[in-house]
Simulated scan of single mutants.
Amino acid sequence: MGRGHRPERLGEEIRKIISELILRELKDPRLAMGMVSITAVEVTADGSYATAYVTVLGLDPKHEEREKEQEDVLEALRSAKGLIRREIGKKIKLRHVPDLIFKIDKSMDYGRHIDEIIQNLDK
């Protein structure tokens, strides 16, 4: 028996809510470093955890301070986790709001790396 698409649908709703909160509600200056985007949210099958993947756009990919700035953004989101969970609970009727885990989405860096490899093959 399949589990259905509930975790995917729930993850998408949580992604929309977090994105809206970052845009309108959260006033942490660490979130103003670049454009912060929630690229995906993966919810576990039992709904107890939700991993939100964060991309910080506008940072120089070669800049040596990039990792520190990304960590600052993650820390700002972690400090606002209670507010974010409360808003998720208000907007989505759930018995248990998943615990949030924030991680940097490295897929853009990986894609950039693959592009460089392909370009070097042509030479």
Score class of each variant (00 low, 15 high):
M1C: 03
M1Q: 06
G2Y: 08
G2S: 15
G2M: 03
H5S: 14
R6K: 11
P7K: 14
P7N: 01
E8R: 13
R9H: 14
L10C: 09
E12K: 12
E13D: 09
E13W: 09
I14T: 14
R15E: 02
I17A: 05
I17V: 10
I18F: 12
S19F: 12
L21W: 06
L21C: 11
I22R: 04
L23F: 10
L23S: 12
R24Q: 15
R24L: 13
E25M: 05
L26F: 04
K27C: 10
D28K: 09
D28L: 01
P29W: 13
L31Q: 07
L31F: 05
G34Y: 05
G34C: 01
M35V: 05
V36C: 13
I38D: 06
T39F: 09
T39V: 12
T39M: 05
A40D: 12
V41F: 12
V41A: 07
A45R: 14
A45V: 14
D46E: 03
D46S: 02
G47D: 04
Y49Q: 05
Y49A: 04
A50M: 01
T51W: 13
T51F: 13
T51S: 10
Y53N: 11
Y53R: 07
V54C: 11
V54F: 00
V56R: 04
L57P: 00
L57S: 12
G58F: 11
G58V: 08
L59D: 04
D60N: 14
D60H: 02
D60V: 03
P61N: 07
K62H: 09
H63T: 04
H63D: 14
H63Y: 01
E65V: 00
E65C: 00
R66W: 01
R66E: 06
E67T: 08
K68S: 03
K68I: 00
E69S: 10
E69Y: 15
E69L: 12
E69C: 10
Q70T: 08
E71N: 13
L74R: 12
L74Y: 02
L74A: 05
L77Q: 01
L77P: 02
L77V: 02
R78Q: 08
R78C: 07
S79M: 14
S79C: 03
A80T: 05
A80I: 05
A80L: 05
K81S: 15
K81L: 09
G82L: 15
G82A: 15
G82N: 06
L83P: 03
L83Q: 04
I84K: 06
I84S: 08
I84Y: 02
E87H: 07
I88V: 09
I88R: 01
K91P: 09
I92H: 08
L94K: 02
R95C: 00
P98S: 02
P98Y: 04
D99V: 06
D99M: 00
I101Y: 03
I101W: 01
K103D: 01
D105G: 09
D105P: 03
K106W: 07
K106Q: 15
S107H: 06
M108K: 08
G111V: 14
G111L: 11
R112D: 14
R112P: 07
I114N: 13
I117L: 13
I117Y: 06
I118T: 13
I118N: 04
I118G: 11
I118H: 06
N120D: 14
D122C: 10
K123P: 10
K123L: 06
K123T: 14
